[in-house]
Amino acid sequence: MGNTDNQGPLWEVFIQTKPGAPYKHAGAVHAYDKEMAIENARDTYTRRHEGTAMWVVKSEDIVAVQPEDADAFFDPSDDKIYRHPTFYEIPDGVKHI
């Protein structure tokens, strides 16, 4: 086989701590198929009732912004302060806005 040392692909684990909460990255596990991935994630990352729901996704399927592109991606939003409510002046006395 020649593959005897292979630990299987890496999967990233995301856990929701309670209903309604966002899914948070918990870590990674190795597993050889989807079914095993979700079981391994459960046995590794939810041993202390950490979650109510869980996702796993193959690490290689994640698309990430490269650090060298980070400024091009994220800095342009720095000066768009008009996207924030505090940018606007509302006359005193106006309520519920």
């Binding site: 596990v29 190795h30 079981e39 391994n40 046995d43 041993r47």
Partner: peptide, 8 residues
Amino acid sequence: PFLEEDLA
């Protein structure tokens, strides 16, 4: 046979 299954 591998670490994850040990925990399981």
